[in-house]
Computed example of a mutant assay.
Amino acid sequence: MSLSVGQISYLNCAPFFHHLARTGFQGELIKGVPSALNRMLHEGRIDVCPSSSFEYACHWQDYFLLPHFSISSFGPVQSVLLFSPCAPDKLAGRDIALTGESATSVNLLRVLLWEYFGVKGAHLAVPAQSSVEELIAQGRPALLIGDRALRGARRFQNQCLIYDLGELWQQFTGLPFVFALWILRRDAALRKGEEIAALNRLLEQSLSLAFASLEEMALTVPENAWLEPENICAYWRCMSYRLEQPHIQGLELFFQLCHKHGLIETLPAMEFFTAQPKPAVQGTVFA
């Protein structure tokens, strides 16, 4: 059975996917922004995806996690940015424009505003007409993620204040922030266990190939020609693609705060896929 894998169309995912075909992957790749792929994963239209950590928190009973992998940052992430005419603690009652592409980044902003800046009453919404970039140019606060954030940082660097949400999280918590996890559906784990175990191995190989030749890989990303190869490599190096104990601690705190502020109903368990006849569960509920 062919494995259907969601592929986020952002520069930060390139190390997972650039060499994947070279490693022998023969499944189907389905590209999209995080919010669209979250929906497809939840609806069962794809089997596995590097998907929003908030998506896992909302529907963890339907999922397993691939061990070892994430899209995280220990400090600045460079591509999840709040553009604002004022400091975050002055945003009470303001409208903050969103792109609607990532549930994790939006809820991270909510947690930061509510828990650490003491800001209540800010209204976060996708604008009905103007683009987010147009609103930033008009002096309105807004959140950009992914490649649009990288472009926005260059375009608006002298026009407003820019806050990196990964950096803010680390400043307040001392922990990394996990933006995405490799999430697979439980029914896919039961039906396609061998294919998923193979994907886990191929992702490891693909990452190793990528970080052995980042400069070469950066030259092959034409849609990001606006960003110099050395800056692309620096961006990849600022990311963490692993899922280790500090990442788990950061996830635990984020999920606890989401639960505290009513963003999720229950605290999720971390349940990992293992390559056995039936997927084994290694879970502890966050307390």
Rank of each mutant, 00 (worst) to 15 (best):
H259T: 04
T284Y: 11
S35L: 13
I162E: 04
C58L: 15
F255S: 05
E216N: 00
L202F: 14
Q171D: 09
N12L: 10
F64S: 06
V33R: 11
G139L: 14
L253D: 05
E194W: 01
I232K: 12
F69Y: 15
H59Q: 07
P246T: 14
E167C: 05
L3C: 08
H68C: 13
M1Q: 10
A210K: 08
R22N: 12
Y163A: 13
G44R: 01
S240V: 08
Q249M: 07
S73T: 12
Y235G: 03
Q129Y: 05
I46Q: 05
L253Y: 12
L108H: 01
E195K: 04
S53V: 06
A210D: 06
A137W: 12
S240Y: 12
S35P: 02
A125N: 08
G93T: 10
A57K: 06
V77F: 10
N38F: 04
P268S: 08
A125S: 15
W182C: 02
Y241P: 11
F179H: 13
A234M: 00
I30A: 11
L108A: 04
I136M: 13
L181Y: 09
G146D: 11
Y116Q: 10
L161D: 09
I136C: 10
P15A: 09
L257S: 07
T23Y: 08
M217Q: 01
E133L: 08
P268L: 12
R151I: 09
C86V: 13
W226R: 04
Q157R: 15
L66C: 01
L207D: 11
L190P: 00
A212D: 11
F179V: 06
C258I: 03
E115W: 09
A103K: 01
F64D: 02
Q61T: 09
N107G: 01
V48Y: 00
A103P: 00
E230C: 07
L203E: 12
E228F: 06
T220N: 02
C238G: 02
P246A: 14
A36G: 10
S79T: 01
A234C: 03
L251V: 02
W226I: 08
R237F: 03
R201H: 14
